[in-house]
Amino acid sequence: MNQGIAITGMGMISAIGNNVAENYASLIAGKSGISKITKIKTVHENEIMVGEVAATNEELEQQLNLKPNTYSRTPILGILAAREALQQAGITDISSYRTGLISGTTVGGMDKAEQYFYDYFERDTHWAHINGLHAGDSTQKIAEAIGLEKSFVTTISTACSSAANAIMLGARMIKSGELERVVVGGSDCLSKFTINGFKTLMILSDTYNSPFDEDRKGLNLGEAAAFLVLESDDIVAKENRKVLGYVKGYGNANDAFHQTASSENGDGAVLAMEKAFKVAGLAPAAIDYVNAHGTATPNNDLSEGRALQRVFGENVPDFSSTKAYTGHTLAVAAGVEAIYSILALQHNVVYPNLNFKTPMKEFNLVPQTELKKKEIKTVLSNSFGFGGNCSTLIFSKEA
């Protein structure tokens, strides 16, 4: 039987909460964070709905004691989440063990780079924001803020499966002995670039997204940051850590079907889930809850639904998508949903799939629509990205 990797800390900020506790309270209350755009000036502000973090950059900068207008929103959110995760883990000296940071992002510093784009050839006043465009810059800023600038630091950008792959890589590095502790997850903010890009793809909704519903209209973009602390068994024993849960299994595959669409039969998703089961040493019957990718787009929900049926047959476990709460937070979605999965394990709950009314005509799959209390020992979480990059994580209460 596979030994899982211990999770000892979690931190996050999203449209439904400024920390893990607030996020959980919103999940239990069925409180969505989806609203009209208020923080970005765009011609689409009255056409779509998004999941915005409530605080402004200025408010977050004051909270972190940062100089005004020095960081883009992505690392600001990431620093908040990473610090919360380290605090919960009880880590006061981050250099006491071989520690790394693996962060997923798609936007990077895009929000500030686009703000000062037209100044690019005129003046160099905001050159730091132009240089901060790339994804790795955001990760480095987070690393510096938590004291890891001279450690193993890397960025994963595999679209919407980025944070899942960050968690998977972190677990593998601990298993291999390369690192003893890894901070894993991701951070992404909203920007005009992503709004315009997804608008062009015609998959944004002008109302509240409704995963797995026959009448779903598309996704709501969101912003968030979420990080988990993974630690080796040796650290857990030496430091007497409280273990929140375990990364039990993981799998990554590519269905090589289309640049932005998943295959209609969910080939990549099936392969990712099968790999995760193999790593975990578990059978599908062991899963008590599936936190689905569930973007509420016509393509994803059809593809993922068929994949679930192929893997679980007639016995698909309780499942729901939590993107109706937060919106689709792109690279960090799997980090957000990893924390939600661990919270489900801790509190023995299945979250409701908000806004669901009508089953899809292609199959008779109905997500959990009300908060459900049940014994949960194992949770499977799916994350599928553009380019066909499909990842599955399995979390458990026991190693």
Score class of each variant (00 low, 15 high):
Ser96Leu: 13
Met202Val: 09
Cys189Tyr: 05
Tyr250Val: 04
Lys323Phe: 02
Gly30Arg: 02
Ala292Tyr: 00
Val184Arg: 06
Asp301Trp: 02
Ile167Tyr: 04
Tyr120His: 14
Ala143Trp: 09
Val336Ile: 15
Arg123Gln: 15
Lys372Trp: 01
Leu64Ile: 07
Gly251Lys: 01
Val229His: 04
Gly108Ala: 12
Asp288Ser: 07
Glu231Trp: 10
Glu114Lys: 11
Pro359Val: 13
Ser210Leu: 09
Glu362Asn: 10
Ile156Val: 15
Ala283Ser: 14
Val50Arg: 05
Leu221Asn: 10
Pro211Glu: 02
Asn265Gln: 14
Val53Phe: 07
Glu314Cys: 01
Trp127Leu: 14
Asp188Lys: 03
Gln309Asp: 02
Gly197Ile: 09
Gly90Pro: 09
Ile48Thr: 08
Ile79Leu: 11
Lys242Phe: 06
Leu228Gln: 11
Gly387Ile: 10
Asn240Lys: 15
Gly281Phe: 10
Ile174Trp: 06
Ile7Ser: 02
Pro317Phe: 03
Met273Leu: 09
Gln140Lys: 13
Ser303Tyr: 06
Asp137Thr: 14
Glu274His: 10
Gly185Glu: 04
Ser383Arg: 01
Ile48Tyr: 13
Pro68Trp: 09
Asn209Glu: 04
Met202Ala: 13
Ala6Phe: 05
Ala307Gly: 10
Gly186Trp: 03
Met12Asp: 03
Glu52Cys: 06
Ala399His: 07
Ala276Ser: 14
Leu244Cys: 07
Asn23Val: 05
Asn315Cys: 01
Thr154Ile: 11
Leu101Glu: 07
Ser191Arg: 06
Lys41Asn: 15
Val20Thr: 14
Ser320His: 01
Val349Glu: 00
Ser205Val: 04
Arg98Asn: 13
His328Ile: 01
Lys141Val: 13
Met110Ser: 14
Asn252Thr: 15
Leu365Glu: 01
Tyr97Val: 12
Gly185Trp: 02
Asp233Ser: 14
Ala331Gln: 12
Thr8Glu: 07
Glu362Asp: 13
Val336Trp: 01
Ser396Gln: 03
Gly335Ala: 06
Ser381Lys: 03
Ile28Gly: 02
Ser391Ala: 15
Asn131His: 14
